[in-house]
Design a protein around this nucleic acid. Structure first.
Lengths: 248, 248
DNA sequence: TGTACATCAGTGAACGCGCGTTCACTGATGTAC
DNA sequence: TGTACATCAGTGAACGCGCGTTCACTGATGTAC
């Protein structure tokens, strides 16, 4: 049974208009604000994909609450951003899984995953940016060194991809040009390349995303070079002097 | 003939030690500080590839000058950052051209360019980040709409790449799976994918950059799928409902 | 050669701003007796 | 059923900080006479 709204203090209208006039959460409903804060933070992240333009004050204003009340739900700003990322990351993972489920057979799973990846990234450029285009502390530092192999298994999507590739190789759908892990990473970097360049340089006259991913598939399927040209490609290390840049 | 240093006010040592004690530039040498400012700004950009942690104050401190003197050389911070980017962009372009020159024949030019691209990106992650991993105003907005086709011709490296691909197709080294422009963009996104993911996620246990680009070449050369699997790849549009995201 | 003066590279103090965060508080809600 | 009280969601004022930028200035350098 809905309780009657509390009388407004002194301001003009008692109920509607004005900046929303939040109804204060009930005793057990503390988590409601928490979710609203996350929503607002994510919204800010999306519209101004612009770095950390997201501020505690802006978030609190959207939610219709004062800045300090955020600290009742998150110990500090980092914790908030982390929570936003985790939520987005989870949704991303779920979306990829759904994409994979659409196909039957490992090759179609892989394609489904790649397509879902690109869809999610282009539909959620702000989230994609913080998750995959920005260096640094998405996860608390302690976690990183905690489990040595966790770095990759944390990237759950990649693990699933490796699994699909292994099966595709076993079934004979994919040539084992390298280990399943290396090939999965290649697929990841390729689709990430499309997504991230489009996001970072939206003003460029790109082909449609569809054309791009189709060309990627076609090239993977057919190979790009005439046979007599292939020999040109086989000589030792390609990169000179480059510092490794892994585990800086 | 070196003029004798001016007497120090009251502080301890008259000449050495202490934070460097800049010699003030001569009459015509105003541009010396300008270059030093650019160097410092770029250095900051590199070491803290972390967004715009670069501040006027930090720059001026490195150069050994007070903050306001920067405004004698750049009208505001945006102009400074823009100048840093332009300088880096020029160097990048030069480096790519050198990489291309090493090979003979269009296919080797393409590979040389791709390899140089990855080298530059991994050796200059800070610069690469601002140039290709961060959305927004690298160029003054006016320029963007000025010349309609300038958006791509501004990306000089891509234009050169398209040229190489055209020649490679003409010579029969590359199969025309799509237009030269589309294929060039694909090559760009692929190598960007490798570079940008390594830069954004340095803590991941990546294969060596060399292994990655070799696998990319190999895959482009050979195709990745067994022939009987290829048919699975040919069906209409792949992406659902994704908003176009170009020219937002 | 000597002096007065214009030039101009760089200074030092200050501005207003938005930020993350703290602190003591208010007042509605539910509970114990 | 009625009252006193603990709980706890949210407030309002204030903090210190680093930022980009401005302003009037200083004082060495080069030039004109």
């Amino acid at each position: 049974m809905p309780t009657s709204p509390p009388p407004q203090p002194t301001t003009a209208e008692p109920n509607a208009t004005a900046p929303v006039k939040r109804v204060r959460a009930r005793r057990g409903e503390g988590d409601r604000l928490r979710e609203e804060i996350l929503d607002a933070a994510e919204a800010l992240l999306v519209e101004s994909a612009d770095a950390e333009a997201v501020s505690i004050r802006a978030i609190s204003q959207i939610v219709g609450v004062t800045a300090p009340s955020i600290y009742r739900h998150f110990v500090d700003k980092d914790a908030l951003v982390l929570a936003v990322c985790e939520r987005a990351y989870d949704r991303f993972g779920t979306y990829l899984d759904e994409g994979a489920k659409k196909g039957n057979g490992p090759l179609e799973e892989i394609m489904g995953r790649a397509i879902a990846y690109l869809e999610f990234a282009l539909d959620n450029p702000g989230q994609y940016r913080v998750l995959f285009m920005t260096p640094g502390n998405k996860k608390p530092d302690s976690d990183l060194s905690a489990t040595p192999d966790a770095t990759f298994s944390e990237a759950k999507g990649l693990v699933m991809m490796i699994d699909s590739v292994e099966r595709a190789i076993a079934v004979g759908q994919i040539k084992p040009l390298a280990s399943a892990a290396e090939m999965s990473i290649m697929l990841w970097t390729q689709v990430h390349g499309i997504a991230s360049l489009r996001i970072a340089q939206p003003e460029m006259p790109w082909p449609t995303a569809d054309a791009q991913i189709q060309l990627m598939f076609t090239t993977l399927a057919n190979g790009m070079c005439a046979n007599e040209a292939v020999t040109a490609m086989d000589h030792g290390p390609k990169l000179a002097k480059t510092r490794t840049r892994t585990r800086s």
